[in-house]
Design a protein around this nucleic acid. Structure first.
Lengths: 192, 192
DNA sequence: CATCTAATTAGATCTATATCAAAATAACAA
DNA sequence: TTGTTATTTTGATATAGATCTAATTAGATG
C-alpha cells in the first residue's frame, strides 16, 4: 500500500507533496531560516529554537531526506548546511505552471459524469431533468452523444431520439441548442 | 497566545507557513490540480476525490482563506475556481531568496553564545577550553572582545589579558590568531 | 409555507506527527 | 580501555488536523 493513498500517485505528485510537507512545520521553517544565515550544529539549532536535540535531529532528517540540507561531521558534532541550489531547483519545479496542472492527472476524470448518469438514468430513461446547471450539463452531453457528427436531422427526428429518454423533448432540445451541443438552421439540426 | 508559538512571529513568516500548510495535504493538492483543469462544484470534487462533501468543504475553506481559490454561487451550488494570479504571486514571494533569509530573523541569534558562555565561564574564569570548534569559536569571540580595535598590544600584555580568564594563555593566543580574531606582526598584536 | 437540494457547521473519531526522556551509538580523549 | 560529548534512535505522549456522520443553513421550487 502506497504511503500516499490507495491509488498510486505519480512520482511528480509525490515529489511536490513531500516538498510542501517538509516546509509546512513551524520548527522546520525556522531551521531553514537559521541555516540560511549560517551553518549550524544540532545543539546550536536546539538552543536557538528552544527545543531538545532529538527533536531537531528529527526535523533535520526530514529536510535531509529531500535534499534541502546536507551535513558534515566535525568530530562528534554534525554541522548542517542549507542546500540552496536544491532549494532553488525544487522550488522552481514545484511552482511551474505545468506542474500544477499535472497534480490532477491521477484523478478519474469521468467519475463525476458516471455518477450523475447513474443517479438520473433508469436504463435508457432519464428519470428527471436535473435542476443544477452542473448536472444538467452532464445529461446534455450524454444526449448529444446520441447524435452523429456528420449527419443532418429534421426536427421531428431530433424529437424522436430525445423522447426515447425523456418525454419533455422540447425543453431538452432547446437546452441542447443553448449549450451549443446541437446547432440548428431553418428547421435542420446537426452536431457542431 | 499566538497560533504559531510563544514568540510572536513576523507577518511574513506566518504567510509563508500558511502557504506551505495549505498545500501540504494530499487531498488539497488534488483539489488544486482538479481546479487547474476546470471550475468545479463541491459535490463534483467530492466524487472525483472519493471523499464526503463536508471534507471537501473543509479543504476548500483552507484554500480560500489564503486566496488560492475563489467561489461563486449558482443557486445552491457553489462553484470553486483556482486563482492562478494569486497562486503565482504567493509562490513567487514565498520562494524568493530574500524571503528564505527572513525566516530566521525572529530567532534570538545570541541565545547560543549566551548558553556557551554560561556553560564554560565561572564569573570571569574560563573553566575549560571547549573541544568542539563550534563552542571554542564562541569563547574566542568573547576573548577577542577583551581587546580594543584601535590599540596595539605587545605579546606580554596579550598574555596577561588572556591569563585573567584561563591559565593556558599560549594556546588561546594561538587560537585567536588562527581564527583571525587577532593579528600579529613582529611581536605586536592588534584586532583586525 | 413546506419541501428539496447543495453546502456548511458542529461534534466525534482516528491518524499523523511533533515533542520529549531515556537508551543506544559514534567519535574522540585520557 | 574507560570516560566524555554530540548525535541519533527508540518508545511514549500529546497535539494537530483529516475525515466522517448528523444537524443546520441557504437557495430554489412547487
Amino acid at each position: 500500500m502506497s504511503q500516499y493513498g490507495a491509488i498510486m500517485a505519480s512520482a511528480e505528485f509525490v515529489r511536490v507533496l513531500s516538498f510542501f510537507k517538509a516546509l509546512s512545520d513551524e520548527s522546520r521553517l525556522k531551521i531553514v531560516g537559521a541555516l540560511a544565515a549560517n551553518d549550524r550544529s544540532v545543539e546550536e539549532l536546539a538552543t536557538l529554537l528552544d527545543l531538545r536535540a532529538p527533536t531537531v535531529s528529527h526535523h533535520l532528517a526530514k529536510l535531509k531526506e529531500i535534499g534541502l540540507v546536507d551535513m558534515r561531521s566535525e568530530g562528534t558534532t554534525h554541522i548542517y548546511r542549507i542546500n540552496m541550489s536544491e532549494m532553488r531547483t525544487l522550488a522552481k519545479r514545484v511552482l511551474a505552471l505545468d506542474t500544477i496542472e499535472t497534480l490532477g492527472e491521477d484523478l478519474v476524470e469521468d467519475a463525476w459524469d458516471r455518477k450523475i448518469l447513474g443517479d438520473f438514468f433508469e436504463g435508457q430513461r432519464l428519470k428527471e431533468i436535473p435542476a443544477s446547471r452542473k448536472k444538467r450539463e452532464v445529461i446534455l452531453r450524454w444526449l448529444a452523444d446520441r447524435f452523429q457528427f456528420d449527419k443532418r436531422y429534421p426536427e421531428k427526428e431530433v424529437n424522436t431520439i430525445i423522447a426515447k429518454h425523456h418525454p419533455d423533448f422540447a425543453t431538452l432540445r432547446r437546452e441542447l441548442i443553448g449549450a451549443r451541443l446541437l446547432a440548428r438552421e431553418s428547421g435542420v439540426y446537426w452536431r457542431p
